[in-house]
């Protein structure tokens, strides 16, 4: 589990890195092409917007591994540790349920839109939707790992 987690985490980080670079290049290339080259680079806007979509979901999975999602910690920290762990585990179960649904229906919509052409890019809309099942699996693995580790840590 640990090796798998590490592998997934590094893969995710590498993808995020590439997405950020693509985003910067496509937005600035749009300006460069229009203003300096006096031509159009029609793919830049759509590519940048889809990069943001991918970054949102992949980065969200990354933030599960890194435990950086935004939350209120004030109230929950007043409870005794076992209660905290139980609430956290229940919440994680709910979130896992949600992403299981996103995964199932995400695969469905990915399949349905595999023939939908992008306006300017040589990809289909299904490729864009494909991020949802991928990031759902990552988030589920991340939450399972976190829950198991928190109970192990709690016993020590």
């Amino acid at each position: 589990m640990k090796i798998l987690s590490a592998l997934l985490l590094n893969g995710t980080r590498l993808s995020l890195l590439l997405l950020m670079i693509i985003m910067v290049i496509s937005v600035s290339w749009g300006v460069f092409a229009r203003y300096i080259l006096q031509t159009s680079a029609p793919w830049t806007g759509e590519l940048a917007a889809y990069t943001l979509v991918w970054l949102t979901f992949l980065g969200s999975a990354h933030a599960v591994f890194e435990k950086t999602h935004i939350r209120f910690e004030t109230l929950i920290e007043l409870f005794p540790r076992p209660v905290q762990l139980t609430i956290n585990a229940c919440f994680n179960a709910l979130i896992i349920l949600f992403f299981a649904l996103i995964m199932i229906y995400g695969i469905e919509v990915t399949a349905k839109t595999m023939s939908d052409q992008s306006m300017t890019l040589p990809i289909t809309k299904g490729v864009i939707y494909g991020i949802l099942p991928v990031c759902s699996i990552l988030i589920i693995i991340g939450l399972l790992t976190e829950t198991i580790q928190s109970f192990r840590g709690g016993k020590q």
């Binding site: 979901f57 990354h62 950086t68």
Partner: peptide, 13 residues
């Protein structure tokens, strides 16, 4: 780059 991506994602989600 990864730090910026992470900060973006937690707001965007």
């Amino acid at each position: 780059l990864i730090s910026a991506a992470n900060q973006t994602a937690i707001v965007m989600i």
